[in-house]
């Protein structure tokens, strides 16, 4: 009988847990935003989301993935808003009818990172395509995200600009790790390799050790972010009003100012450009 009573108590406890746990987690006004590791790893969201919540009372739950994966999350209807940085992929997303409209939000730029010793001797080069050509010709150890992320797309564009078909023309020096930006930087740090990073993640990255920026400032290294509401016509569960409020905030003068104000050690990480329709 003791056993039965304990068992009954256990069942009761479970029932209570089953009821209480969801309540504990319940948040009435919230949206899910599928975004990129770069926005999270750069610390932008930690800064921006509390400001947005204070203004609207909406909790934003960010799933940080590569751009391709984030768009897939939107395609399955598992997010209300996608906030990514690979214009070509975003336009494809729109053409599939998965998104409602794309709004440019901000840009930062990519930087080519490498060890202080710079065995390839590319430091200070103005032409990023030339720098990539040197890395290829000298078979310098290079870490690629390899995860269909915005950064990965940008890297592939730059190889193409250097006249290299990296899909076919690469050796053991070229390592695609299939992970996020932070992991790629950690790998480069640990293996004395070159790596392409967005500036935001790089500035926020704490394990720099003897890595440094070698090439930056080329126009082809600009990194444009866009935001889209997932199409409610395709995915009825999308919270279109709340999601649109988030987008409206990002492109509003207030949101743009907040983005511009985000700095680390006095360095601005993102440059708002919602007013530029071509971005």
């Amino acid at each position: 009988m003791i056993a039965r009573r304990t068992f009954a108590a256990l069942l009761a406890f479970c029932a209570i847990t089953a009821v209480v746990v969801p309540r504990t987690f319940a948040q009435d006004k919230s949206i899910v935003v599928a975004s990129t590791t770069s926005t999270q790893d750069s610390g932008l969201f930690e800064y921006l989301l509390p400001l947005f919540k204070k203004k609207t009372g909406i909790t934003v739950k960010v799933i940080a993935q590569g751009t391709g994966q984030a768009l897939d999350t939107g395609r399955r209807g598992d997010a209300d808003v996608v906030f990514v940085h690979a214009k070509a992929q975003e336009e494809k997303f729109l053409s599939e009818g998965q998104g409602v409209k794309r709004f440019p939000v901000m840009y930062n730029d990519f930087v080519l990172i490498g060890p202080n010793s710079d065995p390839a001797g590319i430091k200070g080069m103005k032409d990023v395509a030339k720098a990539f050509k040197v890395l290829h010709d000298k078979k310098q150890s290079f870490i690629s995200r390899g995860d269909r992320s915005g950064t990965h797309s940008a890297e592939l564009r730059l190889w193409k600009a250097a006249g290299i078909d990296i899909a076919k023309d690469h050796g053991p020096w070229y390592k695609a790790i299939g992970q996020g930006m932070g992991a790629a930087l950690n790998t480069a740090q640990a293996s004395n390799s070159y790596v392409l990073s967005d500036r935001g993640t790089w500035i926020h990255f704490k394990n720099k050790s003897d890595l440094q920026i070698l090439v930056a400032g080329d126009r082809r290294m600009f990194n444009q972010y866009g935001v889209m509401l997932v199409n409610p016509a395709k995915h009825p569960n999308v919270k279109k009003e709340l999601g649109q409020q988030f987008i409206d905030y990002l492109v509003s003068p207030k949101g743009q100012k907040d983005i511009a104000n985000y700095t680390i050690n006095g360095q601005q990480l993102f440059y708002p450009d919602a007013s530029d329709p071509s971005a």
Binding site: F25, Q27, V32, T37, Q40, D41, F45, E46, L49, T59, K61, V62, I63, A64, Q179, G180, M181, G182, A183, L185, N186, Q189, T201, H204, F205, K206, N207, K208
Partner: peptide
Amino acid sequence: GGNIDGFTRTMTTAIALETSKGDL
């Protein structure tokens, strides 16, 4: 869980995130 800050972030996913941010 998606490792959402303040919502689905646990010890282990936070460790994964901090590692990726280089905050070893």
